[in-house]
Amino acid sequence: MLEIKNIYAKAGDTEILKNLNLSVKPGEVHAIMGPNGSGKSTMGNLLAGMPHVTATSGSVTYQGKDLLQMEPEERAAEGVFLAFQYPVEIPGVNNMYFLRTAYNAQRKYRGEDNLDSAAFLRMVKEKIKQLHMSDDLLKRPVNVGFSGGEKKRNEVFQMAVLEPNLAIMDETDSGLDIDALRVVADGVNQLRSPDRSFVIITHYQRLLDYIEPDFVHVLVDGEIVKSGTKKLALELEEQGYGWLES
């Protein structure tokens, strides 16, 4: 699914990722943990194509294609989804319109016909019901007036509608109370499938109580310094990152 090899990358003028390597197979869930400033979000932004994050060397292959050569919208249409750490607000544009535009743009890229309004409405209502979220979300402007938890739930809802192959969750748990965390985690778990992979970026082990990862990696100073199973996350919870930073 995803092969990151020897990536060095800058955010603006600052080199953040230094010899990053990661391999993700279909259906796998990888958790990326690490201290502040280690490059976790930069990694997510690089994969999604944020303009000011640029690779200076190395390669990223996604489903056999050179991901770094694609525009952000092409990556999305190829099935890459980034759940934002800080979802943006778009006043005056309701979720329903935004999502249908995104959904049909992706279909167009893939050579498929647009889904008409009625069919799209049926589909999103079904999705929102499955995720136990209120369909009031559809009528509201994108993230405007949303609480932190609502914004993160909206990210999960977008993911459910767009059905990516590779979902990168950038600190989706940050700022969530325990109930919101459960809702978000339930949403992610519902979307797990043999064809869909997840890269979950988090500071805390608590999210991994709800989303069971196949692998846990520790990113320090732009490089994965240790990989393991969920046990590694528990060790980090007890000991912190200090023992890996030296």
Partner: peptide, 21 residues
């Protein structure tokens, strides 16, 4: 970037942002 990351092309994303503005 948020709009493009959801699959919306650059020009359409700009148009949406202008409507929002």
């Amino acid at each position: 970037f948020f709009l493009r990351s959801r699959g919306i092309g650059l020009e359409q994303a700009k148009a949406i942002m202008m409507v929002s503005f």
